[in-house]
Design a protein around this nucleic acid. Structure first.
Lengths: 342, 342
DNA sequence: CTGAAAGCGCTTACAG
DNA sequence: CTGAAAGCGCTTACAG
């Protein structure tokens, strides 16, 4: 005999009473409750999760789907860890466990998610790395599973998401460079169908237009997440006529490669090419000249995801389920990599 | 009505028969089996995991506990992501799901693990970042939960682990430096109680002894995982009298900081201080002069963990459970950072 | 305030 | 080869 039955027998009570005491349900004598709690602690009793899930119809677990794609995983460096910590900070007090679900690089995202959902492994999901058109959103909606996306999609169906404020980063970067006399400004966007690339590009074009500058598609460089991608970018960029005087990045690590290639060519970051980096990270923190970049609080991103999910799990008594759509701001860290144009 | 009951009714069969058909049990008419499988596919039936777990006593999930401690997390996602992919590659074909369990930085490892284990969330565990004395090993043994550690402990109780071959890295590094005329060789070890620090130190001392050199505790530097830690190390190192001519690292990123600080001091990596880095990683790949370091196949590490775990889940019919203890080798990548001593 | 019993969705001896 | 029934460890109306 094990579990709650054992506990009940040990105490000479029924499992019903023990269960009610354990779960803080009303209608249990205070002395009884205390006896139960004491015994549970003493015997190290923990309710069997599967039995609980079956009886209650909920798992008390939240899944966080993460791609293992080497392509996108590189950016993962320390990004997700910070986010997880933030998510836990709001889920743990609610008694919810966070299960990170790594989708193998060999497996299709949809197949992976479909299986997770159908097996009823979690009460809610957080998905990340959203594509412009991301069928995972429809899958989760169809399954009626509460979810939040870390990242938007281009679809206009309403769903909860938390995303970085790419628009403001693009606008601030352009404003700053234009104010310093730059007119030919290059931009990086990700390979593939990741939605934030389109957002970034759109906001960038708008910001240029606001200054009466024209958006030149030739100055938009599709790159990967890595250091090498930044390196490879430089030669293409220098080939442009007239040569751009500045570049705005969307990946943290690319800056390192750009600095490296410029140095090889006898060029100097800042003087020969103004650079505004993306998220602050250990790797770029000590570049010389110091990189102008943005600070992002990963913990906040995670916490926002957690809250958005809770809002879906406990829908307001009256109204429709509350949909969260929240952009997290990044703050500028002034460096010396984007001086006045020559 | 839902789940298997619904499926059974749809087919005019008992749930028992449907279950047997679904699970490929013997004693089901071929035609019946086919009908069941067809209907399951058509209706998108997936067994409820909680019910299955309760009935079978197993979850078909494996947990991978990961620390979110900023201290150790810095070493990062990029490390774990590669490992996860390797683990999945052997678990997925067995129908096992991998659940990554991130222990919040605010929570005690033992409390976190204890809860996970007691709730019966997984059939097996992988733990990482083992301390010299790591109570998680005893906890898992006491709970009789199959587990594998990524990393050894100093305990002499036998349990399954997969670890990097720190001994060979230490020995090869020392041999190489001594052959190049170095006699005063410094070493880094991690802060805290991480077990591999002790292993690395021990192997280092032994290797020195094999060359008739004495191990000088003043040349052993305790450092963290970050770039800044490498930076901070340099001044202390240069203070030593006589000054060491070489250093062997145990963290990937430290090399970047060492290069940076040396440059500030007008010193040159290699010429003024021979450096052997640790694991090859994007961050150190383009240092100049190129860093001598080691390559590690993360996928292999993960696959080894997966196999070690399977060996525990399906114990050999006859014998005692097979314990895996496997060191994964790292291969030298020759660079220019450790030339002959002056 | 407490107990007996049904039910959550599966699996699996046990009959037939 | 198939069905009826018990059981996995919980929770929760329903009686008392």
């Amino acid at each position: 005999m094990r579990g709650i039955t054992r506990l009940a027998q040990e105490l000479g009570l029924s499992t019903g009473t023990v269960s009610r005491a354990l779960n803080d349900m009303p209608g249990v004598h205070e002395r009884t409750r205390r006896r139960v709690l004491d015994a549970a602690l003493r015997l190290g009793y923990q309710p069997n999760q599967a039995a609980r899930t079956l009886a209650l119809g909920q798992t008390r677990s939240i899944g966080f789907m993460m791609d293992l794609e080497p392509e996108t995983a590189a950016s993962g460096d320390s990004f997700f860890m910070g986010v997880f910590d933030g998510v836990q900070s709001v889920l743990t007090p609610e008694g919810l466990d966070l299960l990170v679900l790594p989708c193998p690089s060999s497996q299709h995202r949809m197949a992976y998610l479909d299986r997770i959902v159908a097996r009823g492994l979690v009460d809610g999901m957080i998905i990340s790395g959203t594509d412009r058109a991301d069928p995972r959103v429809e899958l989760l909606q169809a399954a009626q599973l509460p979810f939040v996306a870390l990242g938007r999609t281009s679809a206009d169906v309403p769903f909860s998401w938390v995303d970085l404020d790419f628009e403001t980063v693009a606008k601030d970067s352009v404003d700053r460079l234009v104010a310093k006399g730059h007119r030919r400004i290059a931009l990086t966007v990700p390979f593939g169908e990741l939605n934030f690339g389109e957002i970034f590009r759109g906001a960038f074009a708008e910001a240029l237009a606001a200054h009466g500058l024209t958006y030149d598609p030739a100055l938009v460089f599709r790159t990967g997440f890595g250091e090498q991608d930044g390196y490879d970018l430089v030669d293409d960029l220098l080939k442009q006529e007239p040569r751009p005087t500045a570049i705005v990045l969307i990946f943290e690590v690319a800056a390192v490669g750009i600095y490296r290639r410029l140095a090889e060519l006898g060029l100097e970051p800042g003087r020969d090419l103004a650079i505004i980096g993306f998220r602050d990270e250990a790797v770029v923190r000590h570049l010389v000249p110091s990189l102008t970049r943005y600070n992002l609080n990963l913990f906040d991103v995670g916490a926002a995801l957690g809250h958005a999910l809770l809002a879906q799990l406990h829908p307001e008594p009256d109204a429709t389920v509350s949909t969260t759509q929240r952009k997290i701001g990044l703050t500028l860290i002034e460096g010396a990599s984007d001086p006045e144009a020559a």
